[in-house]
Every structure is written in structure tokens, then in C-alpha cells.
Design a protein around this nucleic acid. Structure first.
Length: 105
DNA sequence: GCCATGGCTAGTA
DNA sequence: GCCATGGCTAGTA
């Protein structure tokens, strides 16, 4: 049980390092956390993140540059997309250019 | 235990 | 294909 939380903590730690205005993929986070092949776990952890968390969850997208989260605000805008655009990260044809905005640690 | 289910993905086609 | 979770049966005791 404690091992699991430790993994989650490592993952969140790495996500917290993603710089403003950049994005990283689930797989990339997993790898940097020392957990290659655990991309899905990253998704799981983020899904269960509590609302109060200060972790920049929205800077994590899939490896194709697409947003996986579908949550909308009252205006019908995708919440994650809004948060990214507020940092200057925009979508083109529904995708973020990883070349431009991808985090290179 | 077994099996389905995910905020996924490298590597084909 | 990967892998942690969670719900749900067998099958013991």
C-alpha cells in the first residue's frame, strides 16, 4: 500500500517540474519518474488528483499532442485547453505542437 | 484469482 | 501491448 503512494508521489513530483508554457506526455512523465511503461498510471494518478491540488496537471497531454481530458466549464470550453492557452500554449487542428511546446528536460 | 477498464503508447500500415 | 485498480466469482474453512 505504501509503495503505491510512493509511486504516485514520484509522478506528481515530476509533473510539478514541468515549466510554465510547456507540456509533457504521460509516457514522458512516467519515464522521468523512473517508471517507464507506466504512462497509464500517470493518467490514473492525475484523474484522481484532488481539486485543490496545485500540481499543473493540465500541462500533461498525450504523446500525439492531444488533450485527453474532456471537462468543460460553464461556457462549454475545455478547461485544460483554456489553462494552456492562458500560458501561451495553443492548439492547432486540435493538437499542441510538441516541437514548439514540448518540455525538454 | 480472473477479468474488464482506463485522462496511454511505440511502432506498423 | 502495457500495468495498477476494482468488482466479482470460485473454492477453502
Amino acid at each position: 500500500m505504501q509503495d503505491t503512494n510512493e509511486l504516485h508521489r514520484q509522478i506528481l513530483e515530476v509533473i510539478a517540474l514541468i515549466p510554465y508554457g510547456t507540456v509533457a506526455s504521460y509516457g514522458q512523465i512516467a519515464k522521468l519518474a523512473g517508471l517507464p511503461k507506466h504512462a497509464r498510471l500517470v493518467g490514473y494518478v492525475l484523474k484522481h488528483l484532488d481539486k485543490e491540488s496545485q500540481i499543473p496537471w493540465y500541462r500533461v497531454i498525450n504523446s500525439q499532442g492531444k488533450i485527453s481530458v474532456t471537462r468543460m466549464d460553464e461556457k462549454g470550453n475545455n478547461v485544460q485547453q483554456d489553462l494552456l492557452e492562458a500560458e501561451g500554449v495553443y492548439l492547432l487542428n486540435g493538437k499542441v505542437s510538441l516541437k514548439k511546446f514540448g518540455w525538454q528536460p
